[in-house]
């Protein structure tokens, strides 16, 4: 039976099998590259050696034999390496719960728990409705505030037109002067009236 290694895939973001396959292919590619390089060197050396009877075809044959041999060795070793990596590295122990799955720790055990979950969902729905209502109410108040502030600023602006906070410039002083002056005039008038009598 296949173990699909789903939890490991969730954690790593790739399947362990794909990972091993990629490693295998990488090794294979490298082996092939090395063989090609080695063959080139041998060809060069063979052609430069005096009295060499080695042909390119012979060298190619040997290279292919060597490659086959290396491949077989590698495949055997890789089986062991794959086992170790899958068991010890690309593996999540069965008792481990990933942090992202903490909400599933207490999986609903039956009808009761499911019923509780449904109640919770309904409560959340009501809370959301209330919050949305609050948002509309707050936005409405902001609109009313704008209108009210504009009206109040208009009134203040009207007061500005009348003059500063103590009335039109100098009104207070002028009034005080007039009253003082009137007081003096009154006493002078009384004085003159008496003297003229």
């Amino acid at each position: 039976s296949i173990n699909p290694l789903l939890y490991e895939t969730q954690f790593f973001g790739f399947t362990p099998q794909t990972c091993m396959l990629r490693i295998y292919i990488a090794f294979q590619d490298y082996l092939f590259e090395v063989m090609v390089a080695v063959e080139k060197v041998i060809l060069k050396k063979a052609s430069s050696l005096p009295g060499s009877t080695l042909s390119a075809v012979q060298i190619r044959g040997s290279t292919e034999t060597f490659l086959r041999f290396m491949r077989e060795r590698f495949n055997r070793l890789f089986v062991k390496m794959e086992q170790v990596l899958l068991q010890l590295v690309l593996n999540i122990p069965p008792n481990i719960l990933l942090p992202e799955d903490r909400s599933h720790e207490k999986y609903p055990q039956g009808r009761e728990d499911f019923h509780l979950l449904q109640q919770e969902v309904e409560q959340l729905r009501l809370r959301y409705k209330a919050e949305l209502g609050a948002k509309h109410a707050l936005l409405a108040e902001l609109e009313v505030q704008k209108v009210t502030q504009a009206r109040l600023k208009k009134t203040l602006h009207w007061f500005d037109g009348l003059g500063d906070a103590h009335g039109p410039l100098g009104l207070g002083e002028m009034m005080a002067f007039l009253i003082q002056h009137s007081g003096r005039l009154r006493s002078i008038t009384q004085d003159v009236t008496q003297k003229s009598k």
Binding site: A134, H136, E141
Partner: peptide, 29 residues
């Protein structure tokens, strides 16, 4: 008009329940 009981259940119920009477303010002008 939104039913006030709707948003009095929300997280901003305190602020919404202390809303000043803006019409009164405007009338006082």
């Amino acid at each position: 008009e939104l039913d006030s009981t709707l948003y009095l259940q929300s997280s901003q119920s305190e602020i919404l329940s202390t809303k000043p009477d803006y019409q009164k303010i405007l009338d006082s002008q």
